[in-house]
Design a protein around this nucleic acid. Structure first.
Lengths: 214, 214
DNA sequence: CTTTTTATAGATCATGTGATCAACAAAAGT
DNA sequence: ACTTTTGTTGATCACATGATCTATAAAAAG
């Protein structure tokens, strides 16, 4: 009475009976699905539903994470990790290329990473919930990205008004808001985000009298 | 054994016994507190805790709202209502004053209304939850505020690049992001939001070749 | 003062949800 | 083959939470 017909029974998750996985693998699988799941339904999503999606029992989750909060921590970590590429600080301060090009390259790549439903929604949810990782991420972003950008701008600014961190946050916010609009508020995505980003950067640079070629 | 010493028994809410209020009044009281409550703890906050804050029984809430969702709808309505002053469209299109002054006036007033913890958090929570009122609000904002701003900018723009709705959204987003940063992500508020707003507007106008006095 | 109305409290139900634990079975070791 | 290890299940607990219902008492009506 086994009936191991490993046909795909149309269930998105394979309903094969009791597959044993190495812990590392299973844990990763759980976290992966949890990211998608909690991004969709919010952090209050229940563990039974998540388990069902994974094709495992709910109790199994607690074999890998002592509490739901611990699972959420793992989700945050997975989502936040490697979102800030370590070579950006260097590339942003590489004065052999015009600042405009550097900013454009950065925000093109960065927006490619964060203008994503899962990331945007989990970041916002965890922010609302007051997760420490959220604040840590923003502090880190300020330190390794925005502050260098400020220094680079200062070095080139021509007008009498000197740039401040608020100016960088304003540039940053205007761009990030595109993602918020589309993925949190569910509004239609701009046809050409690249152009919008480029114009944001140009407005910023123009205000401090910095030309496209420095 | 009454001991009605109306000393503060550390309970924030007065524990006066069974006060009978006219329905309208009670309903308003509930919604008011619910706004604060759900803004703090999120939309999953439970009704018992809310009732405790109000100093009434949990069952009373269901005398005024059939379901929790109905209460949340009332919360949204309360929060969204009158957040968009009806005379803004007129003032934004009043060409007897420079566009810069108009924008400055608008965003100073508007930010004064929305850079508020309750509003910001409930707006974001309801946005994440996909509330219809949220989308309606943004559509409305686009129609009665941003679109007119686009028209005004078009009328004055000097460069060859014509402004689009995306430019207005970018201006708007950069400013709104200040509130998101402070009230959702819990980062320190800028010392002088007015200046940041003014600079945002100036960057925007400068990019389209519009001077401070038109 | 007496009666009627109804806002409110208190107890309780039904269900959902995080978490636990003993038993089972799929691998790994011998 | 046999034993050991351990990933996984199924049943279950404990409690939180939305919602219901009846009794009570504060006003209003007479």
């Amino acid at each position: 009475m086994d009936g191991r017909l490993d046909s795909e029974n149309a269930d998105s998750e394979s309903r094969t009976a009791r597959r044993r996985l190495p812990p590392k693998e299973r844990r990763a699988q759980i976290v992966d699905e949890a990211v998608r799941f909690f991004a969709e339904v919010g952090l209050e999503g229940n563990t039974r539903q998540l388990a069902k999606r994974l094709g495992v029992t709910q109790s199994l989750l607690f074999n890998y994470f002592a509490t739901k909060d611990e699972l959420l921590e793992a989700v945050y970590e997975k989502v936040y990790l490697d979102r800030l590429s370590p070579d950006w600080p260097d590339r942003l301060t590489d004065r052999t290329t015009p600042l405009r090009s550097r900013l454009l390259a950065f925000y093109t790549e960065y927006s490619g990473l964060i203008f994503e439903r899962d990331w945007m929604r989990i970041f916002m949810s965890s922010g609302l919930a007051g997760a420490v990782l959220n604040r840590r991420y923003l502090m880190h972003l300020g330190d390794v990205i925005l502050r260098p950008v400020l220094a680079e701008t200062e070095a080139l600014a021509k007008g009498e008004t000197r740039p401040t961190m608020e100016d960088i946050w304003n540039l940053h916010g205007g761009i990030v808001y595109i993602g918020i609009r589309t993925h949190i508020y569910g509004m239609p995505e701009p046809e050409d985000p690249e152009t919008v980003i480029a114009q944001s950067i140009d407005k910023y640079l123009l205000y401090f009298g910095i030309g496209p070629e420095d």
